[in-house]
Simulated scan of single mutants.
Amino acid sequence: MAETSIRYLTMLRMIPRYPRTVTTSKLAEDLEEHGFQLTLRSIQRDLEKLSAHFPLMVDESARPYAWSYNASAAASMIPALDMPAALTLELARAYLAPVLPQRALEHLQPHFREAQETLGRRDNPLGRWPERVRVINRGLMTRRPEVNGEVLETITEALLKDLQCELVYKARSWPEPETIRVHPYGLIFRDPNVYLIGTIDGREGIRQLALHRASSSALLDEAVDRPKDFDLDQYIHSGAMGQPFHHTPIQLHLRCDTEFMLHLAESPMSLDQEIFNETDESFELTATVSDTMDLRWWLVAQASHLDLLAPEYLRGETMKILEASLQRQKAASIEAG
C-alpha cells in the first residue's frame, strides 16, 4: 500500500468523535511517533482532502484548527462490521442499557447503530434479534439517578491518567454542597448507582461517592496518591460496598427449601460454598460470606424458604427484623380498617 494511503489511515484513526477534538499540532506529534514527519500545513491539506469523503468536522475558531468526527458518524470504517461482531454488540446494548448512565451510552450509540444496520441487511433473520431479547434486573425497577455527563467524563479521564479531580458534591448528610479534592481509585457500577471509590483531601478513609450527587467537576494536573496495595476487587470482596457490620467474614449455615433455593447450587454464595444433606424437599448449605446489609436484606426476603442455622446472633437479629415488620403491618391493617 502506498505510504500516503497508510498515512491517511493512521491519521483517521487518531481523530476522536465530537465533542472531543484533536488539533493539527497534536496530530503532528502523534504522526511523528508513527514515522510520519509532516508540517502543520501538510496535515491541514490532508484533512481537507479526507473531509470530502469522511464525516470530519473542523473548529476553525481554534488555533491551530481542531478536528473531530461527526457525533453520529459510523462506528468503524475498516474492517467492516461482520455478523458475529454485530450480534455481540447488540447483546452488549441489551445488557448495558439498564445499568449504564445515559451519557456513557451516548458514546456507544454509533457502534450500536452500525450493529443494528448490519443485522438488518439482506432480510437477515438476525435483524429481528432486538425484538427478542430483554434484560431484567433483579429487585425493584427504580429509576436510575441522573449522572452529570461532564462529571462522568472528568472522572473517567482522571482514572485513566491517574490524576486528581475536584468535585462540587453534596453527600446525603451534608447540609450544603462542598467543593472537594478527590483522589480517584476506581468506578463501581452497582445498579442503579455509579460510585467513585477514592479518598478526599483532609478526610480519613476510602470513600464511596455516588456520582449523581456531584454537580460539577474539574480535572487537576496533580497525580493521585493511591496506596500501592489497593486492589478494587479486594475492596469489593471485603464487603465494603455492602455496608459491613463486621470486619471479619462469617460462616453462614442454611437449610433451604429445594424448590425455591436450588439456584444457589448454580450461583454459589462463596468460593468455599458446600451443599450437603440433600433431599427432594431441602438441602443444607455452608458458605463464608461478609455480614453486610445486603445479606440481611436477602435473609429477610427469603425467610419463608430457608432456616438460618448459624451464626446464632444473625438468626436473632433477623427474627427481630421480621417480628418488627409483622407488628408494623398488623398496625397498618388495623389503621386501614
Rank of each mutant, 00 (worst) to 15 (best):
E48S: 15
R132F: 09
V151N: 02
L12G: 02
H212D: 05
Y313H: 15
A97H: 01
A80K: 09
E178I: 02
V135R: 02
D46F: 00
Y185N: 07
Q109H: 14
E317H: 07
V300F: 13
G120C: 09
Y169T: 11
R190M: 10
M83Q: 14
L196H: 09
S282N: 14
S333L: 12
L91K: 04
A324S: 15
Q102F: 14
P268Y: 00
L100R: 05
A218N: 03
S51I: 03
A214S: 11
L40Q: 13
H111D: 01
Q164F: 08
L219R: 05
F276H: 15
W174A: 13
L187I: 13
V151C: 10
T21H: 15
L87K: 03
D272L: 09
F36A: 01
S238C: 03
H212K: 06
N193E: 14
R190F: 10
L271A: 12
D191W: 14
T292D: 00
Q302P: 01
N70R: 08
S216D: 06
E90V: 00
D162F: 10
A331W: 06
T21W: 05
R41L: 11
P130Q: 04
I136H: 14
E146T: 13
S61H: 03
L56W: 04
V168A: 10
L299T: 12
H246P: 08
A324C: 09
Q109V: 10
T4C: 09
D162V: 12
L96Y: 01
L152T: 01
R296T: 12
E3S: 02
R121K: 15
K228D: 01
T318C: 13
P19A: 05
G186C: 06
R7F: 04
I43N: 06
G139W: 03
D294I: 05
L163A: 04
V300C: 15
E3K: 14
S173I: 10
G139P: 08
D123M: 08
L140N: 05
T279G: 07
L232H: 10
T142V: 13
A74F: 03
R172F: 14
M14D: 03
I334L: 10
I250H: 02
